[in-house]
């Protein structure tokens, strides 16, 4: 059984070069430059409206920056778009079975039909949904749907998995299960880039923290350092819960 991304040469690092994103005359992303490298789990935190979700969408290519460049600059960036996946806060399931939802992703990605079934089953197994594979996806619980969304993303063996607050609308038990799966996906070699405003989760899952504030990247640090010795005033206030607005 093959696990881990199927390409030897990575699309990472991802270079953000002075990117801006405006909407309605407002700078949502206000000049961010950063390099996201293979390996550590990158967690993006910051107060509401800091531009976390928009930054994630810019990285994944769902939005185009109004200025600046988002560039995959690894040794092999062919089909970069197909070698990344995203899990959203609220999973969007197709009106078909759980299994068919995973198989659909494989079909879109161009896997031959004979490979799809085995891969889809494997992914459902990983997220603990094998027994529900025949159930219509939309009638699954919120936690089950999010696990299915992870299976659908993971089955593509992405090199990078973006996640936008994947547990924000789930109860603690379901969130814990999602965190376990994220750990497994990372252990199998997928780069994790995740937005959360659950600081406990950021601590548990993050190797490095990117702290956003009003569209700017204020601070970037290893997780333990960010939480124990934040360098910026904004981060100190954010961690204290004294949000400056």
């Amino acid at each position: 059984m093959k696990v881990g991304p199927s390409h030897a040469a990575s699309i990472l690092p991802l270079c953000l070069e002075a990117i801006f994103f405006q909407r309605g005359g407002r700078d949502i992303i206000d000049g961010i430059s950063a390099q996201i490298v293979a390996g550590p789990r990158t967690v993006i935190v910051g107060p509401n409206g800091a531009g976390k979700s928009v930054l994630l969408r810019l990285c994944h290519g769902l939005l185009q920056p109004t200025a600046g460049v988002v560039r995959w600059s690894g040794p092999d960036v062919r089909n970069a778009q197909q070698r990344q996946a995203m899990v959203f806060q609220r999973p969007v399931m197709l009106r078909r079975s759980a299994f068919a939802n995973v198989a659909y992703a494989l079909e879109v990605a161009g896997y031959p039909s004979r490979e799809r079934a085995a891969r889809a089953h494997e992914a459902l197994e990983l997220v603990g949904l094998a027994s529900l594979s025949g159930h219509p996806a939309r009638v699954l619980s919120g936690g089950e749907q999010q696990r299915l969304a992870l299976a659908r993303a993971w089955t593509l063996r992405p090199e990078v998995l973006f996640m936008d607050e994947p547990t924000a609308s789930l109860d603690p038990g379901a969130a814990q299960e999602i965190e376990r799966i994220i750990g497994a996906v990372h252990a199998a070699g997928t780069k994790i880039v995740m937005v959360t405003h659950n600081l406990g989760q950021a601590r548990r899952l993050g190797d490095e923290i990117l702290f956003l504030h009003q569209g700017r990247l204020i601070e970037r640090a290893p997780t333990d350092i960010f939480f124990t010795r934040p360098a910026s005033v904004e981060a100190v206030q954010f961690l204290k819960g004294e949000l400056p607005w």
């Binding site: 969408r57 769902l62 995203m86 969007v92």
Partner: peptide
């Protein structure tokens, strides 16, 4: 569906069919 289907990289013909 937009973001999810775009993320999966569906072509326009497939979007319509889906």
């Amino acid at each position: 569906y937009r973001e999810q289907l775009q993320s999966l990289g569906a072509t326009r013909a497939r979007l319509v069919a889906t």
